[in-house]
Nucleic acid binder design. Structure first.
Ligand code: FES
Ligand code: FES
Lengths: 157, 157
DNA sequence: TCAGTATACGACCAATTATGTCGTGGTTTC
DNA sequence: GAAACCACGACATAATTGGTCGTATACTGA
């Protein structure tokens, strides 16, 4: 249904947190999990994946934890999502992978592949830094100055 | 994992098919399903939803079936996906709906909501007609890397 | 060196969702 | 009336996701 997994969400949250605390040498998974009410072990696994992908740097032992391996500006949402959820594709059957069983059929694949590229592009254009710069929860969902897109709630649907 | 459901895919395929056969007064679900190897009853249900959404017009009886209720140019991929899969949102918890349990936490929600809007915009800019006009490359999946998106310019940022 | 804290990783179960089927009934055409 | 269709809801099944557990490993500090 075209939605992000929670793991990816958790990963983004954690990275954002790290980006907001550049002073701290390392933040433990448990610490972040505790702050946000995320299942600690699950978050741990997510962060481990990000570490393996080279986005994070880990440090065991007391006062250990994770820290950004790159500048927050260099890490894109795409990389995060990609390394957690694996390559995402709009269409079930990707070009490079297993072709559709409905082979001669699915003629919508190619156009959608382009949509896929667009989405990936958008995600790539967003850095962790961008997330961190977002204004801390303004009580109201004002967002008046957004300009670009109106986050308008669709209301009832 | 940010991918389209098969139902939505089926719906798109069927609509494309209809757009390609403007002469035929009506095409039965079974007909389309047969052509593409899609489970007939499942496709039927999908088409029924599209009918209820006003995108299709149905006609019972012999030689009955479905036909586009609007011009292929007026129907966007977004509408199709939306009416089949319901409103899609990148984030698990949407603003208008049930708020995250991690309430004070999920600070990535708002920025991602904007990504969501962008994606929706891309989808809205693609019409069934666009899909139907695509040239059927039966060609090799040779990783051509089609470069940029050139459907309907909308998402330039 | 020893205990405490933390990551690393794989296996496993539980919850949700997506996919597909069945059955029943209603419409239109012939 | 029969055949070919749509309409709809209730299932059953498969696939993903979400989350837990157990254990091994690495680092710190007393
Ligand atoms: S079913 Fe394969 S891309 Fe649509
Ligand atoms: S967990 Fe609610 S939007 Fe991220």
């Amino acid at each position: 249904m075209l939605k992000l997994t929670k793991k990816a969400d958790y990963g983004l949250i954690a990275l954002k947190y790290l980006a907001e605390h550049p002073e701290t040498p390392a933040v433990s998974a448990k610490d972040v999990a505790d702050t946000y009410g995320i299942p600690p072990q699950l978050l741990a696994k997510v962060l481990q994946r990000l570490t393996k992908s080279g986005l994070l740097r880990s440090h065991a032992g007391m006062n250990g934890g994770y820290s950004l391996a790159q500048d927050a500006r260099q890490i894109s949402a795409y990389e995060v999502i990609h390394s957690i959820d694996g390559p995402f594709f709009i269409t079930s059957c990707v070009k490079g992978a297993k072709p559709c069983e409905l082979t001669p059929s699915c003629t919508v694949r190619e156009p959608l592949a382009r949509v896929n590229e667009t989405i990936a592009g958008v995600l790539k254009s967003i850095s962790i830094q961008d997330l961190a710069e977002q204004e801390p929860h303004t009580a109201a969902h004002g967002g008046d100055a957004q300009g670009l897109v109106s986050l308008s709630a669709h209301g009832t649907e």
